[in-house]
Design a protein around this nucleic acid. Structure first.
Lengths: 250, 250
DNA sequence: TAAATAGTGTCTCTAAGACACTATGTT
DNA sequence: AACATAGTGTCTTAGAGACACTATTTA
């Protein structure tokens, strides 16, 4: 039997029914707090519960494409706005009983977005919105989404250490103080302004100067800050390490 | 309609047929070279090509369980031997045309194993073995397995930097020189013996002394070395960073 | 005896972090 | 005027890497 003959006689339905979904942990920063895109489910299972945006992968699309499509559908965004969102694969979740309907493996993705408008609910959902991660309805998340969110947050914290992806939470131009704000928000503790400033400028390719300053100083005073844009580095070297916490090591 | 009614009327077969497989990038070190577990396929598609060990996930098993089962089947190992193998999820691969039979998403895993006996071929394969990664039949790997192997190797190199997983390539007791050999093999370049020695002992929880020395010195001379076992750290702090390569940063 | 290796000592350089300070903007 | 902030200077300390050296074991 050659390959052609084999494929002609191959019956996909002979295998147990499984399905693939993509789910997205989409993060943004609003008013100095980390926010997560959630959908309140309008249908069973977990009707009325908050859940990650996501859905079944279409037959012709790649996993990353499906995740970006879901993100576009739930946020109502498209074009350039969406293109500035960073999207990466997070991990896959496939415990046999994680979905009561059938065997569903979810390929979770992680997204970093600049401040976006409030999402518009689509047909599947009666509500959608950016919720602050510090006040999540923790055990009320559908499926195993609480676990996925935890993994996504840890990945995000870690990614800020060795990649320049913090800039993806900001607009095309930003000040060093705004960049520091991203780190402080995601990591959850304050950083030393002076040392942070010097450190960022010393890492090759992290940011590049526009030569322009902000129009005004800070809201409560201070000089006008220089504006920067993201540089061409894909990795930070040396990295910006979080202060070590003994618990995470053992 | 409540949740119960919904589930009773739910028809899984209404969704397009997809399948989930697990594939394993299993690495070990033999005679100072990094080796990869490969199977020569006995059936179409890609009959006669080398492929990663793997297969369909069973209805009742978790993804990690499936990966460990596949590894057990292909290596013919079980029990304690298998329990010492490190296994983690790598990434999922789901390009629509990656498998000619049907839509198949593969959840790839990465394994670090101490030197294991040669695998025994099972019914699906006419050949199985540990192949040196430096001499892989690169474009002859089935499916998108060349890409998966590349991702696995990069993950392995990176993991040695900030975790103590290098010890998983060794037996329960090892010398600092053997541990250095793992790093040199995986990273592909020599390290300074003296500095490596001091560095490893200075990282809390990386290794702990057994108090015992080897029976003999090195094959070509030298004092007998102290034996260590893996410590209780899960992360190395400070990390053992690879010398920076400019290419990977930009 | 010659050569290889385990392990330690020491020096230099980079980088992180603490602290101080100036200049410039705000209410 | 009082205060907040951008950006820089300086000092201390930890850690990486280069090099040297001793002691121990092999063929």
């Amino acid at each position: 039997m050659n390959e052609q003959e084999f494929l002609a006689g191959y019956d996909p339905s002979a295998y147990p029914a499984t399905a693939i979904t993509v789910d997205v942990v989409a993060l943004t920063i609003r008013e100095g707090a980390l926010h997560l895109l959630l959908i309140r489910r309008g249908q069973p299972p977990f009707q009325g519960h908050w859940a990650l945006p996501g859905g079944f992968v279409q037959p012709d699309e790649d996993l990353a494409t499906g995740a970006r499509r879901e993100l576009a559908e739930e946020t109502g965004l498209g074009g350039d706005r969406l293109r500035r969102v960073h999207l990466e694969q997070l991990a896959s979740y496939g415990a046999p009983e994680r979905d009561p309907r059938m065997r569903i493996v979810s390929v979770a993705h992680l997204a970093f977005a600049p401040d976006l408008p409030d999402p518009v609910a689509d047909s599947d959902a009666d509500e959608a919105g950016w919720l602050p991660v510090t006040a999540l309805p923790s055990r009320q998340l559908a499926f195993d989404h609480a676990r996925i969110v935890d993994d996504g947050l840890e990945r995000a914290r870690s990614k800020l250490e060795y990649t320049p992806l913090a800039t993806r939470f900001l607009g095309p131009e930003f000040t060093i103080a705004e960049l520091r704000g991203v780190y402080e928000t995601v990591w959850g503790h304050p950083l030393h302004a002076g040392n942070f400033h010097r450190k960022v400028l010393s890492v090759p390719g992290f940011v590049e100067s526009t030569g322009v300053n902000t129009e005004r100083g800070g809201a409560r005073g201070g000089p006008r800050a220089r504006l920067y844009r993201a540089g061409d580095a894909r990795l930070l070297h040396p990295a910006l390490l979080r202060p070590a916490r003994e618990e995470t090591i053992r």
